[in-house]
Design a binder for these strands. Sequence first.
DNA 1: CGCTGCATTGAGTCGTATCAAAAATTGTGG
DNA 2: CCACAATTTTTGATACGACTCAATGCAGCG
Lengths: 228, 228
Amino acid sequence: MADDLPKRCHDCLVRDTSLCASLCDSELAELGKLGRKVVVREGTVVTSEGDDNLLCANIVSGAIKLLKTTPDGREQAVGLLADGDFVGQPFADSGALTAIAIRNTELCIYPRSSFERAMADRPKLERALLERTMRSLNEARERQLTLARKSAKARVAGFLLGLMRDGNMGSIEVPLSRGDIGDYLGLTIETVSRQFTELKAAGIIAADRGGRTVAIHDRAALQSLAED
Amino acid sequence: MADDLPKRCHDCLVRDTSLCASLCDSELAELGKLGRKVVVREGTVVTSEGDDNLLCANIVSGAIKLLKTTPDGREQAVGLLADGDFVGQPFADSGALTAIAIRNTELCIYPRSSFERAMADRPKLERALLERTMRSLNEARERQLTLARKSAKARVAGFLLGLMRDGNMGSIEVPLSRGDIGDYLGLTIETVSRQFTELKAAGIIAADRGGRTVAIHDRAALQSLAED
DNA sequence: CGCTGCATTGAGTCGTATCAAAAATTGTGG
DNA sequence: CCACAATTTTTGATACGACTCAATGCAGCG
């Protein structure tokens, strides 16, 4: 381990899952000097659609939703980010989104200009960002299919299955309000709620605490519902 | 100009708009050796969802639609590509899509492995791909908003405006069938047709030749419709 | 001329949005 | 710990937009 590796990097929870995983300790030491840790409270608007697309940060812990807004004010979440994900678009000149923390979130923020320089010097870093960007693109395309073609029930079922991939166990914490889920799935609060109710009635899930804790009873049924 | 620059590169229509624009002549000479031109007929399936994600190519002329398919067979176009665009995802291991030529199309195809090697050697090429990928991501997110929240009329209006950006003039050729437009906008053929009819009735556009040639009479009206 | 494929038009249905109200949950101050 | 306010979720009634199914119109072509 490099002597000058900042402590916050060495102990970092996402040392091996974030973009930083592409760097060895000595490279990380240099990048580490550029970044600073920032903690934002749930609900904080981290950056906004009108802004200059300057944000570059790793999410150390927490979660962030990316939003687009129609001229008349309706919102659509176009992505959800969690631990280890990168926020921002170095080298892009447009396409800024609104980013809002949906939990208390710890960010490791870099000034865009110095982050761009760091990438130019370190091909592995740039490669890692390219691969991440492609994954995001594939997710965004998958979501086009969902938003354009799938029924409300299929969207909710797919959403729950997506949560199980990480949170896991038969029981999962839903980290979003009904409203946030609606934004993400392109549905209204009421429709999301009704789908939860119907899934409960069918014995496929059980829920309590205002529907924030969900137990999956019949995963196979969810799978098949998610396809319609 | 480098002596060994292949003629097909020097004369290439997209020398300055494709990924190749990031390369100088001597670099292009090397990359050029790896590629080969292929002409495919309209309707050709260039690559398919099940395949191995090996395709890497520049579109020299023509147009390609990228499709995803639901388990029960419905299609959703997740992107349209035109002259100068790049098809494929070097360094990505999943996320393959179906790509179908919607006109006779000329491709400059590279083997994925050698294209990856070329990118590793040439930072400018990799940077150019990163920037393109980010643009695609931004488009995909914009489309999420459209598909999730906008009315049929707004989608069709927005689609026509998008065509004007490139094809231009008051009059534009619609390069897609009603069915293809429906796939792209997440609508049925009938709904697309009805929207065209209503736009004609309102005097905002005029169309003939089975609706394949469209004249925009009131661009401002289209703009405002595209926002609902 | 009669195919064949695509676009248009029409009638009816279904799913989700909308509007409105009740119920459950969370948070706050006494 | 309880009472009360604020927020979120659930439930209900209704409306509307897009889909579905079906028929007709129109062009290109053998």
